[in-house]
């Protein structure tokens, strides 16, 4: 029967081994995969400004991006491709709550420059390789 010290070895050994594997995999992903998949060469200062605006206003508190965030408003990973620049800018610059289907968005009333930055960020996000996410609706006629 298992003794307490064997159980302790199992705990410590298992933790150390899996953590080492985890660190190695993380290193490979971040150094080899991410730069290619996210097209890091396109990560311009404008895209970074867009990300700052995205975070400063907690857009993830309603929307999802790369499938992460809240479930109150649409997934935005492919929004640039789906809606185009004009539509996104209209929503961001609107002085009254944008509510195309009844559900209200906070009226941010961004300047043209800020809206352009967010659009650049969303365009960059839309070009990342996410292993096929979001899936194409296969029953759509």
């Amino acid at each position: 029967m298992l003794s307490k010290s064997q159980a302790k070895t199992f705990f410590l050994g298992g933790t150390i081994v899996t953590f080492a594997v985890f660190l190695a995999l993380s290193w490979t992903s971040l150094s080899n995969e991410v730069p290619k998949r996210t097209h890091e060469e396109n990560l311009t200062p404008q895209v970074v400004r867009g990300k700052q605006i995205w975070e400063a206003n907690n857009c993830m508190g309603c929307h999802t991006i790369m499938g992460e965030g809240a479930y109150y408003a649409p997934e935005l990973t492919k929004v640039y491709e789906r809606r185009g620049e004009g539509y996104i800018k209209a929503a961001l610059m609107s002085k009254t709550p944008w509510s195309p289907r009844g559900r209200k968005m906070v009226a941010y009333g961004f300047s043209e420059q800020q809206a352009n930055d967010v659009v650049a960020f969303l365009k960059w996000i839309g070009e990342t390789d996410l292993n096929g996410f979001p899936p194409k609706p296969d029953l759509k006629k």
């Binding site: 307490k4 159980a7 199992f10 298992g14 899996t18 953590f19 991410v34 990342t128 996410l130 096929g132």
Partner: peptide, 26 residues
Amino acid sequence: YVIVGLTFISGILGTGHHYYYIGVGK
């Protein structure tokens, strides 16, 4: 010990389920 061992063995590499679709590899 056995339970926390199982937790770490499965949980640490289980972090991978958050990494499926965020652009960090297959």
